[in-house]
């Protein structure tokens, strides 16, 4: 790979570095270990959910339900522990089972009833959001056992526990993608579902799996969020799905499916965190922050898409020549 190809391939990573440098120059408060940890903790929920979202996107799908799933698990978890006084561990496991179950049901609807992922998960997004409001009555649920707080607020040494969970989830995600047979199926299906099916891949099963994993990740993020906020609220996850999708897309996961690397997603997630934290530190007002984030997203992704397009076109031109050379 030549220097310029290398540059293009890791363009988005360079954008992140530049961003960090800019904020570090603008404010002395930005580039400090404690602020670094803060950013990491802020993005941990997004990081956890992005693994599931990435899997779904690799197969060519999308999961809009994760924000509502996060809210729903937030409320249901609170309901189990506060209203029903369930012990912490069973309550958490039950929450994970429920959110995975919802993911699985969506997978079944998408594969067996042939509903497009966008619509199926949109329906669940609406439904789960409604359920969260019904269960909570629109009011926050609080009053947890102190022990539960550790999950979202505790530290191991200097590292917040949510960050550790995120790192673990990302690592497991990378392992699945690179080392397991079904991880490779994700790429195959997203690139060409028909050829994947004809190669003997059980496409339906694999898709059900990715939606289940996505539900699981959203549920896990929901539980940790609950512990961090110390109260279950039906609006916690509103807009969350778009943040996660944005992080994935920034990280180079193709919306059309079939391509994307875990490293890219990590960069995408960090970028989201650095941007919102950095803008806050340099005192950009909230609404202006949104504008800046929108612009950065557009510029970063355009840059990335353009360089990929150029590279592809160059490859194509060369290939047209080498074509059938046997």
């Amino acid at each position: 790979m030549s220097v310029s190809d290398y540059f293009k391939k890791y363009a988005i990573f360079l954008v992140l570095i530049v961003m960090i440098i800019v904020f570090a120059v603008l404010s002395p408060l930005f580039f400090t270990p404690s602020n670094g940890m803060m950013i990491a903790r802020q993005v941990s929920f997004m990081g956890i959910a992005s693994v599931g979202m990435m899997f779904v996107m690799l197969t060519g799908g999308i999961d809009l339900s994760i924000g509502s799933a996060l809210s729903f698990i937030n409320v249901v978890g609170a309901y189990f522990m506060v209203k029903m006084e369930m012990p912490i561990l069973p309550a958490c496991l039950l929450c994970l089972a429920i959110s995975s179950g919802f993911g699985f049901v969506q997978g079944v609807i998408i594969t067996k009833l042939r509903v497009p992922p966008l619509i199926a998960t949109l329906a669940f997004m609406t439904m789960l959001s409604g359920l969260a409001f019904i269960i909570s009555g629109g009011m926050p649920i609080y009053g947890f056992d102190k022990a539960f707080n550790v999950l979202g607020q505790g530290y191991v040494g200097p590292v917040p526990i949510p960050v550790l969970v995120m790192v673990a989830v990302l690592a497991v995600g990378a392992f699945i993608l690179n080392k397991t047979y079904f991880g490779r199926y994700f790429y195959a299906i997203g690139g060409n579902e028909e050829a994947a099916m004809l190669s003997g891949i059980n496409v339906d099963w694999t898709k059900q799996l990715v939606y289940t994993i996505s539900g699981f990740c959203a549920g896990l993020a929901g539980i940790i969020m609950l512990s961090r906020l110390n109260s279950g609220q039906p609006t916690t996850g509103s807009g969350f799905e778009f943040e996660v999708i944005t992080a994935c897309v920034l990280g180079g996961v193709s919306v059309a499916g079939g391509s994307g690397k875990m490293f890219g997603v990590v960069v995408g997630v960090l970028m989201m965190g650095v941007l919102s934290n950095g803008l806050l530190i340099v005192n950009v007002k909230e609404y202006a922050q949104q504008v800046v984030m929108g612009i950065v997203l557009t510029v970063a992704v355009s840059f990335d898409c353009m360089s990929k397009y150029r590279m592809e076109r160059k490859n194509k031109e060369i290939k047209a020549q080498e074509g059938g050379a046997l």
Partner: peptide, 16 residues
């Protein structure tokens, strides 16, 4: 369209 997974490597295709 049906035979090879164009976006994947020779290895991935053969072992699929």
């Amino acid at each position: 369209q049906q035979g090879v997974l164009l976006h994947m490597s020779i290895r991935d295709n053969i072992s699929m």
